[in-house]
Computed example of a mutant assay.
Amino acid sequence: MRNSTIFSGIIGLIGGAFTTLFGGWTAGMTTLVLFMAIDYVSGLIVAGVFQKSTKSETGALESKAGWKGLARKCMTLIFVLIAYRLDLLLSTNYIRDAVVIGFCANEFVSIVENAGLMGLPLPAPLKRALEVLRNKAEFEENANE
C-alpha cells in the first residue's frame, strides 16, 4: 500500500470521526469554522501588519495571544459538541444550531472589530452596535469584579 493511500485513509477516518462527534456537517458548522478562520487570520493581520491588536500590550504579534485565540476557538467547538450531546440527551434538534448561530454572531462581531482596527470605514449602524456590545461587555466585566 502506498503512503499517500494510508495518509488519505487516516485523514478520512479522522474527518469522519470529527463529523460524527459533532452530529454531522451542516451549513451552520461550515459557516462557524469559516468565520473562526477569517477572525483568526484577520487578527493576525491586525497584529502583524497594522500592529493595532487589542490582545497584546504592544499591539503587535505575540505568540501567547495567538495561542490564547486558538484555545478560545477550540473551546467554541467544545461548546458545539456539548450542545449536540444535549440535543441527543433531550431528543431535540435545535440546541446545537442555536449555539452555532450564537458563536457565528460572536465571530462576526470580532471580524468587524478587526476590520475597524485595520481602518476599514464601517457603516454608522454597525459602529453603534459594536459600541453597545463593548459597553455591555465592560459593564458585565466590572460587575463581576
Rank of each mutant, 00 (worst) to 15 (best):
L21K: 01
V33K: 06
E62W: 12
G28E: 11
T76C: 08
L34S: 15
S110N: 14
G69F: 06
V49D: 06
S8W: 04
V33R: 00
I82W: 05
F79V: 08
T5Y: 05
V33T: 09
G48P: 12
L133H: 09
G48A: 08
G12I: 03
T92W: 09
G43T: 02
V46Y: 03
A105F: 05
E57M: 11
L117H: 13
F18E: 03
Y40A: 02
G69L: 00
L21T: 00
F18M: 00
A71F: 15
N93F: 09
A60P: 02
V109S: 09
I38V: 15
T20D: 00
L81Q: 02
T30L: 15
V132C: 07
E131Q: 15
N106Y: 15
E62C: 13
T30E: 13
N135V: 03
N114P: 06
L133M: 10
K68T: 14
R128H: 09
R128D: 11
T58Y: 02
L130V: 11
V46I: 06
G48H: 10
S56G: 08
G102R: 02
L34A: 14
I111H: 04
W67M: 13
L34Y: 08
P121L: 01
T76M: 10
L81E: 04
C74H: 02
A129P: 07
K64A: 10
A124R: 13
A137N: 14
G12C: 06
E145D: 12
V99S: 02
N142G: 15
A124Q: 14
L44V: 13
V112L: 14
T5K: 10
M75D: 07
G12Y: 01
C74F: 12
E140R: 11
M75P: 01
E107F: 09
N106K: 12
V49P: 00
E140S: 10
V100P: 06
L61F: 15
R85W: 00
F22A: 02
K52H: 12
K68I: 15
S63A: 09
F18Q: 05
I11A: 08
I6R: 09
N142K: 15
L89N: 08
G28I: 03
N114K: 06
I95P: 03
G59M: 13
V112R: 00
N106T: 06
T76K: 01
C74S: 15
N114Q: 04
G28T: 02
S8F: 03
W25M: 00
T92C: 12
G16R: 03
S42E: 10
I101F: 06
A60S: 14
T26D: 04
L34F: 15
E141K: 13
R2M: 08
A37E: 05
L21G: 01
L21P: 00
T92N: 07
G43I: 04
L13M: 14
A60W: 07
L90K: 03
L133R: 04
L32P: 00
A27R: 04
K55I: 13
L21H: 01
V109F: 12
P121M: 01
S42D: 12
L61C: 11
S110A: 12
A71P: 08
K55L: 10
F103I: 05
G23P: 02
S56N: 13
S91D: 15
A71C: 11
I10S: 01
R72D: 03
T26Q: 05
